[in-house]
Protein backbone atom coordinates (compact mmCIF):
# COMPACT_ATOMS: atom_id res chain seq x y z
CA UNK A 1 0.00 0.00 0.00
CA UNK A 2 1.51 3.37 -0.92
CA UNK A 3 1.48 6.40 1.33
CA UNK A 4 -1.34 8.11 -0.50
CA UNK A 5 -3.68 5.11 -0.18
CA UNK A 6 -2.86 4.87 3.52
CA UNK A 7 -3.54 8.55 4.13
CA UNK A 8 -6.85 8.39 2.26
CA UNK A 9 -7.92 5.51 4.49
CA UNK A 10 -6.87 7.37 7.62
CA UNK A 11 -8.98 10.35 6.51
CA UNK A 12 -11.94 8.05 5.77
CA UNK A 13 -11.57 6.43 9.18
CA UNK A 14 -11.71 9.83 10.88
CA UNK A 15 -15.11 10.63 9.35
CA UNK A 16 -17.46 8.87 11.86
CA UNK A 17 -15.79 10.47 14.88
CA UNK A 18 -15.64 13.81 13.06
CA UNK A 19 -19.35 13.77 12.23
CA UNK A 20 -20.33 12.85 15.80
CA UNK A 21 -18.10 15.61 17.10
CA UNK A 22 -19.61 18.15 14.72
CA UNK A 23 -23.08 16.99 15.78
CA UNK A 24 -22.22 17.45 19.49
CA UNK A 25 -20.23 20.66 19.37
CA UNK A 26 -21.61 22.41 16.31
CA UNK A 27 -20.06 23.91 13.20
CA UNK A 28 -16.92 25.04 15.05
CA UNK A 29 -15.53 21.53 14.66
CA UNK A 30 -15.96 21.57 10.89
CA UNK A 31 -14.29 24.96 10.64
CA UNK A 32 -11.41 23.88 12.88
CA UNK A 33 -10.72 20.80 10.80
CA UNK A 34 -11.12 22.59 7.50
CA UNK A 35 -8.89 25.50 8.42
CA UNK A 36 -6.25 23.24 9.99
CA UNK A 37 -6.12 21.10 6.85
CA UNK A 38 -5.83 24.23 4.72
CA UNK A 39 -3.08 25.81 6.87
CA UNK A 40 -1.10 22.56 7.14
CA UNK A 41 -1.17 22.08 3.38
CA UNK A 42 -0.09 25.69 2.94
CA UNK A 43 2.85 25.32 5.32
CA UNK A 44 3.79 22.02 3.71
CA UNK A 45 3.85 23.70 0.27
CA UNK A 46 5.89 26.57 1.69
CA UNK A 47 8.46 24.24 3.24
CA UNK A 48 8.67 22.08 0.12
CA UNK A 49 9.45 25.26 -1.79
CA UNK A 50 12.08 26.38 0.72
CA UNK A 51 13.82 23.01 0.80
CA UNK A 52 13.58 22.76 -3.01
CA UNK A 53 11.57 19.58 -3.07
CA UNK A 54 9.01 18.82 -5.80
CA UNK A 55 5.53 20.10 -5.01
CA UNK A 56 3.94 16.80 -6.04
CA UNK A 57 4.98 15.49 -2.60
CA UNK A 58 1.84 17.34 -1.47
CA UNK A 59 -0.33 14.69 -3.06
CA UNK A 60 0.73 12.09 -0.49
CA UNK A 61 -1.94 13.61 1.78
CA UNK A 62 0.13 13.55 4.95
CA UNK A 63 -0.36 17.28 5.53
CA UNK A 64 -4.13 16.78 5.29
CA UNK A 65 -3.99 14.02 7.91
CA UNK A 66 -1.89 16.14 10.27
CA UNK A 67 -4.30 19.03 9.79
CA UNK A 68 -7.35 16.84 10.40
CA UNK A 69 -5.86 15.32 13.58
CA UNK A 70 -4.84 18.71 14.94
CA UNK A 71 -8.21 20.23 14.04
CA UNK A 72 -10.05 17.43 15.85
CA UNK A 73 -7.91 17.86 18.96
CA UNK A 74 -8.61 21.59 19.31
CA UNK A 75 -11.69 23.05 21.00
CA UNK A 76 -14.23 24.55 18.58
CA UNK A 77 -14.29 28.36 18.28
CA UNK A 78 -10.57 28.57 19.03
CA UNK A 79 -9.32 31.89 17.57
CA UNK A 80 -7.97 31.47 14.09
CA UNK A 81 -4.57 32.90 15.04
CA UNK A 82 -4.01 30.15 17.60
CA UNK A 83 -4.91 27.56 15.03
CA UNK A 84 -2.40 29.06 12.62
CA UNK A 85 0.33 28.91 15.28
CA UNK A 86 -0.49 25.25 15.98
CA UNK A 87 -0.24 24.37 12.29
CA UNK A 88 3.02 26.33 11.97
CA UNK A 89 4.70 24.41 14.79
CA UNK A 90 3.29 21.10 13.58
CA UNK A 91 4.39 21.38 9.99
CA UNK A 92 7.49 23.55 10.07
CA UNK A 93 9.18 22.78 13.38
CA UNK A 94 8.11 19.20 14.01
CA UNK A 95 8.13 17.91 10.45
CA UNK A 96 10.20 19.82 7.94
CA UNK A 97 13.20 20.78 10.07
CA UNK A 98 13.70 17.01 10.35
CA UNK A 99 13.46 16.52 6.61
CA UNK A 100 9.75 15.91 6.05
CA UNK A 101 7.57 12.84 6.00
CA UNK A 102 9.10 9.70 7.45
CA UNK A 103 11.91 11.42 9.33
CA UNK A 104 10.12 13.43 12.00
CA UNK A 105 10.90 12.40 15.58
CA UNK A 106 7.67 13.70 17.13
CA UNK A 107 4.13 13.40 15.88
CA UNK A 108 3.50 16.80 14.20
CA UNK A 109 -0.16 17.12 15.25
CA UNK A 110 0.72 16.44 18.89
CA UNK A 111 3.53 19.02 18.80
CA UNK A 112 1.05 21.59 17.49
CA UNK A 113 -1.43 20.66 20.21
CA UNK A 114 1.17 20.72 23.00
CA UNK A 115 2.50 24.13 21.93
CA UNK A 116 -1.04 25.52 21.99
CA UNK A 117 -2.09 24.06 25.33
CA UNK A 118 1.11 25.23 27.00
CA UNK A 119 0.83 28.72 25.50
CA UNK A 120 -2.95 29.31 25.71
CA UNK A 121 -4.22 27.03 28.48
CA UNK A 122 -7.50 28.88 29.06
CA UNK A 123 -8.65 29.05 25.46
CA UNK A 124 -7.49 25.48 24.89
CA UNK A 125 -9.55 24.02 27.72
CA UNK A 126 -12.77 25.91 26.99
CA UNK A 127 -15.16 23.62 25.13
CA UNK A 128 -18.76 24.50 24.24
CA UNK A 129 -21.45 22.64 26.13
CA UNK A 130 -22.91 19.96 23.86
CA UNK A 131 -26.40 20.83 25.05
CA UNK A 132 -26.17 24.38 23.74
CA UNK A 133 -24.94 24.41 20.20
CA UNK A 134 -24.52 27.80 18.59
CA UNK A 135 -27.71 28.25 16.60
CA UNK A 136 -26.33 30.68 14.06
CA UNK A 137 -23.43 29.24 12.07
CA UNK A 138 -22.39 32.73 11.00
CA UNK A 139 -21.68 33.60 14.62
CA UNK A 140 -18.84 31.11 14.43
CA UNK A 141 -16.94 33.32 12.07
CA UNK A 142 -17.29 36.37 14.24
CA UNK A 143 -16.10 34.42 17.29
CA UNK A 144 -13.37 32.82 15.29
CA UNK A 145 -11.95 36.06 13.95
CA UNK A 146 -12.10 37.81 17.29
CA UNK A 147 -9.00 38.01 19.39
CA UNK A 148 -8.50 35.49 22.19
CA UNK A 149 -9.47 37.69 25.13
CA UNK A 150 -12.95 38.26 23.82
CA UNK A 151 -13.61 34.57 23.26
CA UNK A 152 -14.74 33.52 26.74
CA UNK A 153 -16.98 36.59 26.98
CA UNK A 154 -18.75 35.95 23.70
CA UNK A 155 -19.66 32.34 24.42
CA UNK A 156 -19.40 32.39 28.18
CA UNK A 157 -22.86 31.06 28.91
CA UNK A 158 -22.36 27.98 26.83
CA UNK A 159 -18.75 27.05 27.38
CA UNK A 160 -17.02 25.00 30.03
CA UNK A 161 -14.09 22.66 30.56
CA UNK A 162 -14.33 19.07 29.38
CA UNK A 163 -15.69 16.44 31.81
CA UNK A 164 -12.20 15.02 32.26
CA UNK A 165 -10.88 18.43 33.29
CA UNK A 166 -13.69 19.32 35.70
CA UNK A 167 -13.66 15.83 37.16
CA UNK A 168 -10.13 16.40 38.41
CA UNK A 169 -11.08 19.61 40.21
CA UNK A 170 -14.46 18.47 41.56
CA UNK A 171 -13.49 19.00 45.22
CA UNK A 172 -15.21 16.72 47.71
CA UNK A 173 -17.91 15.43 45.36
CA UNK A 174 -18.28 11.69 44.88
CA UNK A 175 -18.36 10.34 41.33
CA UNK A 176 -22.16 10.00 41.29
CA UNK A 177 -22.66 13.52 42.64
CA UNK A 178 -20.24 14.89 40.06
CA UNK A 179 -22.15 13.42 37.13
CA UNK A 180 -25.46 14.61 38.58
CA UNK A 181 -24.13 18.11 38.67
CA UNK A 182 -22.22 18.03 35.42
CA UNK A 183 -25.04 16.71 33.32
CA UNK A 184 -25.02 13.32 31.67
CA UNK A 185 -25.44 14.66 28.12
CA UNK A 186 -21.86 15.95 28.20
CA UNK A 187 -20.45 12.56 29.10
CA UNK A 188 -22.69 10.95 26.51
CA UNK A 189 -21.39 13.26 23.78
CA UNK A 190 -17.79 12.26 24.56
CA UNK A 191 -18.78 8.60 24.68
CA UNK A 192 -20.31 8.76 21.19
CA UNK A 193 -17.32 10.66 19.81
CA UNK A 194 -14.93 8.08 21.22
CA UNK A 195 -17.06 5.25 19.86
CA UNK A 196 -16.87 6.94 16.45
CA UNK A 197 -13.08 7.06 16.58
CA UNK A 198 -12.96 3.48 17.90
CA UNK A 199 -15.05 2.39 14.91
CA UNK A 200 -12.72 4.22 12.51
CA UNK A 201 -9.69 2.80 14.27
CA UNK A 202 -10.97 -0.75 13.96
CA UNK A 203 -11.44 -0.14 10.24
CA UNK A 204 -7.78 0.98 10.02
CA UNK A 205 -6.61 -2.15 11.81
CA UNK A 206 -8.88 -4.33 9.70
CA UNK A 207 -7.67 -2.81 6.43
CA UNK A 208 -4.04 -3.22 7.46
CA UNK A 209 -3.15 0.48 7.62
CA UNK A 210 -2.00 0.21 11.22
CA UNK A 211 -1.19 -2.57 13.62
CA UNK A 212 -3.23 -3.48 16.69
CA UNK A 213 -0.49 -3.89 19.30
CA UNK A 214 0.24 -0.37 20.56
CA UNK A 215 -3.45 0.71 20.79
CA UNK A 216 -4.35 -2.52 22.58
CA UNK A 217 -1.44 -2.12 24.99
CA UNK A 218 -2.33 1.51 25.64
CA UNK A 219 -6.06 0.93 26.22
CA UNK A 220 -5.51 -2.07 28.49
CA UNK A 221 -2.87 -0.24 30.52
CA UNK A 222 -5.13 2.78 30.93
CA UNK A 223 -8.05 0.58 32.03
CA UNK A 224 -5.90 -1.52 34.36
CA UNK A 225 -4.40 1.52 36.07
CA UNK A 226 -7.73 3.28 36.54
CA UNK A 227 -9.32 0.18 38.11
CA UNK A 228 -7.64 0.46 41.55
CA UNK A 229 -7.95 4.26 41.37
CA UNK A 230 -11.74 4.01 41.01
CA UNK A 231 -12.16 3.45 44.75
CA UNK A 232 -15.93 2.72 44.47
CA UNK A 233 -16.64 6.26 43.33
CA UNK A 234 -15.60 8.06 46.52
CA UNK A 235 -14.58 11.70 46.49
CA UNK A 236 -10.94 10.64 46.07
CA UNK A 237 -11.73 8.44 43.09
CA UNK A 238 -9.78 8.98 39.88
CA UNK A 239 -12.75 7.90 37.78
CA UNK A 240 -13.95 4.65 36.30
CA UNK A 241 -11.93 2.78 33.67
CA UNK A 242 -14.93 3.43 31.44
CA UNK A 243 -14.53 7.17 31.84
CA UNK A 244 -10.83 6.99 31.01
CA UNK A 245 -11.44 4.91 27.90
CA UNK A 246 -14.39 6.86 26.54
CA UNK A 247 -13.71 10.48 27.30
CA UNK A 248 -11.23 13.05 26.09
CA UNK A 249 -9.10 12.03 23.16
CA UNK A 250 -8.49 8.44 24.23
CA UNK A 251 -9.69 6.65 21.10
CA UNK A 252 -8.44 9.33 18.71
CA UNK A 253 -5.00 9.08 20.29
CA UNK A 254 -4.97 5.30 20.57
CA UNK A 255 -5.79 4.51 16.96
CA UNK A 256 -4.68 7.54 14.97
CA UNK A 257 -1.62 8.88 16.76
CA UNK A 258 -0.08 6.06 18.80
CA UNK A 259 -0.07 3.98 15.61
CA UNK A 260 1.96 6.54 13.63
CA UNK A 261 4.64 4.29 12.10
CA UNK A 262 7.23 7.06 11.86
CA UNK A 263 7.31 8.18 15.47
CA UNK A 264 6.85 4.83 17.23
CA UNK A 265 9.24 1.87 17.53
CA UNK A 266 9.64 -0.46 14.56
CA UNK A 267 9.77 -3.80 16.34
CA UNK A 268 6.69 -5.62 17.58
CA UNK A 269 8.00 -5.85 21.16
CA UNK A 270 8.90 -2.16 20.98
CA UNK A 271 5.32 -1.35 20.00
CA UNK A 272 4.01 -3.12 23.11
CA UNK A 273 6.41 -1.13 25.27
CA UNK A 274 5.38 2.07 23.49
CA UNK A 275 1.67 1.41 24.04
CA UNK A 276 2.11 0.55 27.71
CA UNK A 277 4.25 3.68 28.20
CA UNK A 278 1.62 5.93 26.61
CA UNK A 279 -1.07 4.31 28.78
CA UNK A 280 0.85 4.84 32.02
CA UNK A 281 1.84 8.43 31.22
CA UNK A 282 -1.66 9.35 30.04
CA UNK A 283 -3.17 8.08 33.30
CA UNK A 284 -0.56 9.79 35.47
CA UNK A 285 -0.84 13.15 33.70
CA UNK A 286 -4.66 13.01 33.64
CA UNK A 287 -4.90 12.22 37.33
CA UNK A 288 -2.11 14.34 38.82
CA UNK A 289 -1.05 16.85 36.18
CA UNK A 290 -2.17 20.42 35.67
CA UNK A 291 -3.30 19.96 32.06
CA UNK A 292 -6.74 18.60 31.17
CA UNK A 293 -5.60 15.91 28.76
CA UNK A 294 -2.50 13.76 29.13
CA UNK A 295 -2.49 11.96 25.81
CA UNK A 296 -0.56 14.53 23.78
CA UNK A 297 2.24 14.81 26.35
CA UNK A 298 2.32 11.04 26.89
CA UNK A 299 2.71 10.47 23.16
CA UNK A 300 5.41 13.14 22.78
CA UNK A 301 7.39 11.66 25.68
CA UNK A 302 7.18 8.18 24.21
CA UNK A 303 8.04 9.56 20.75
CA UNK A 304 11.26 10.85 22.30
CA UNK A 305 11.89 7.49 23.92
CA UNK A 306 11.20 5.36 20.86
CA UNK A 307 14.73 5.52 19.35
CA UNK A 308 15.95 4.26 22.74
CA UNK A 309 13.34 1.48 22.75
CA UNK A 310 14.44 0.48 19.25
CA UNK A 311 18.08 0.60 20.29
CA UNK A 312 17.56 -1.62 23.35
CA UNK A 313 15.39 -4.03 21.36
CA UNK A 314 18.13 -4.30 18.74
CA UNK A 315 20.71 -5.10 21.42
CA UNK A 316 18.52 -7.71 23.07
CA UNK A 317 17.44 -9.41 19.87
CA UNK A 318 19.46 -12.54 19.09
CA UNK A 319 21.56 -12.00 15.98
CA UNK A 320 22.31 -15.34 14.34
CA UNK A 321 25.77 -15.48 12.86
CA UNK A 322 27.21 -12.86 15.15
CA UNK A 323 28.87 -13.52 18.42
CA UNK A 324 27.80 -11.00 21.07
Amino acid sequence: MNIQAMMVRVLLALIPGFLLMAYSFGPGVIINVGLAMLFCTGFEAMMLGLTRKPLRVLTDGSALVTGALLGLALPPYLPVGYLLIGCLFAMVLAKHTYGGLGRNLFNPAMVGFAVLIVSFPLAMSTWPDPGHRLADPLLVFSVKLHNGDALPVLIDGISRATPLDEFKFRGALTVAEFWDQFGPENARAWLYINLGFLFGGLYLVYSGVCHWRAPTAMLFTLAALSLPGYDYGSSASTGTPFMHLFSGATMLGAFFIVTDPVTSPNSTSGQWVFGVGVGILTYVIRVTGAYPEGIAFAILLMNGASPLIDHIEFRLRPHPGHSA
Partner: peptide, 9 residues
Protein backbone atom coordinates in the same frame (compact mmCIF):
# COMPACT_ATOMS: atom_id res chain seq x y z
CA UNK B 1 7.81 20.74 25.72
CA UNK B 2 6.84 17.11 26.28
CA UNK B 3 8.16 17.27 29.85
CA UNK B 4 5.85 20.23 30.52
CA UNK B 5 3.12 17.59 30.69
CA UNK B 6 4.37 16.80 34.19
CA UNK B 7 3.61 20.35 35.35
CA UNK B 8 1.52 20.55 38.47
CA UNK B 9 2.57 17.28 40.09
Amino acid sequence: LAFMGFTGM
